[in-house]
Design a protein around this nucleic acid. Structure first.
Lengths: 208, 208
DNA sequence: TGAGTAATTATACGCTTGCATAATTACTCA
DNA sequence: TGAGTAATTATGCAAGCGTATAATTACTCA
């Protein structure tokens, strides 16, 4: 047996995270087929056998990576809530503007999101993850919509239906902003989103 | 040399179509990794060497399949235009309703669409195809929006911005209707879409 | 009818893949 | 300090991958 490469042990959490991160990087760069066991291991700075130590199969690692991505997209929007104004209208406007602007709009994120979404109709576990994150985002939006309507003394609306529509609008704009980044003028999506939300809610949201 | 399997010749167009169709079927069923040369050939009822006769590489075949899919999604919506009423409001309402209802909403279509979309941020040729189909759909929607506004004597609007927003809304609803088919009540998406469009345009679209 | 041609089958190749297994070594703790 | 253990490296395996090539045969046309 020749010289082995020196190594340091790391905890399970750090290893799993590094492998998941490596997987996502490779998928983002070269599509799902780029995330081979050897490429993932190399990217994570370990050797291929280690993947099998922390995940039962490569497929499990890939599923964990997709789940991490989807959960992460939703959490990224939650993390920005603290930076928003307290006024319900301004808060909603800020949330909407953030959702369709860089750094939330991002070609890499769209590519990864799509790679995960192609699994959703075929894989019950992925569908469950997707549904949870979809609902998480939608419910957050629904609460903000309800708050904005309440502040305007509007009790005649269905916040759920508005959230479904608003969520869809944001998703659609986010996809195109990321997929065709050069197609739209700077801040065009933000302006369109704010105006569209103002119309949907029949409220005047402040420009951000 | 043993017994060869008997065969019939077919034209180039038929062969290419069969291979593309087989590719899409396999991707829809098992994701991109399921579309191997052998699986595609078997599904198309030919042997693997034939793929190389009609496409320079397997990758070219897969790209052709994705392009066919994207183009096909847009043409499916065009094919339904002739069934719509002539009245601009009713026509737009019909178009919107179709876009978020079966058979246009379809888990298989969402899965395939996502598989194609994951290429768009990374592959310039795919991005070009996507942009062309996106613009095709959006421009058609924009014309219908402009017609509806003109019929209501509304000259104070920006049909382009409304088309971008409306398109995004339809895309977002379409994705969720296909990805989570059991999450929404029958016709719920249709109702939400019509109401949302009525709001966006500040026009009363007829329920379909 | 028979020659010519190209569509198609059959087979093979080198390489890559995910997974399995054994050995080594970094670390903890008594 | 040294034993124990499990994290990690190294290596190998069988199967499958995309591509290449040769042979056969279905078809057209003179």
């Amino acid at each position: 047996m020749n010289q082995r490469r020196p190594f340091q042990r790391a905890g399970e959490e750090a290893r799993r995270s590094a492998l998941i991160e490596a997987t996502l990087d490779l998928i983002a760069e070269g599509g799902p087929q780029a995330a081979t066991v050897r490429a993932i291991a190399l990217r994570a700075g370990v050797t291929p056998g280690l993947i099998r130590h922390y995940f039962a199969t490569k497929e499990d690692l890939v599923a964990a990576a997709h789940e991490t991505l989807m959960t992460g997209l939703t959490e990224a929007s939650a993390a920005r809530l603290d930076d928003l104004p307290d006024d319900p209208l301004a808060r909603l406007a800020g949330f909407v503007a953030n959702a369709v602007s860089p750094p939330v709009t991002d070609p890499r994120a769209v590519s990864l999101w799509a790679a995960s979404m192609q699994l959703v109709p075929r894989d019950a576990a992925m569908r469950k993850v997707h549904e949870a994150t979809y609902l998480g985002f939608r419910n957050r939006l629904q609460r903000m919509i309800a708050d904005a309507l309440a502040a305007a003394d509007r009790q005649d609306e269905d916040p759920r239906a508005l959230a479904i529509a608003g969520n869809a609008l944001l998703d659609g704009l986010w996809i195109e902003a990321g997929a065709l980044p050069d197609h739209f003028k700077p801040d065009e999506m933000k302006s369109i989103a704010i105006k569209a939300f103002s119309r949907l809610l029949d409220l005047k949201l402040p420009e951000v």
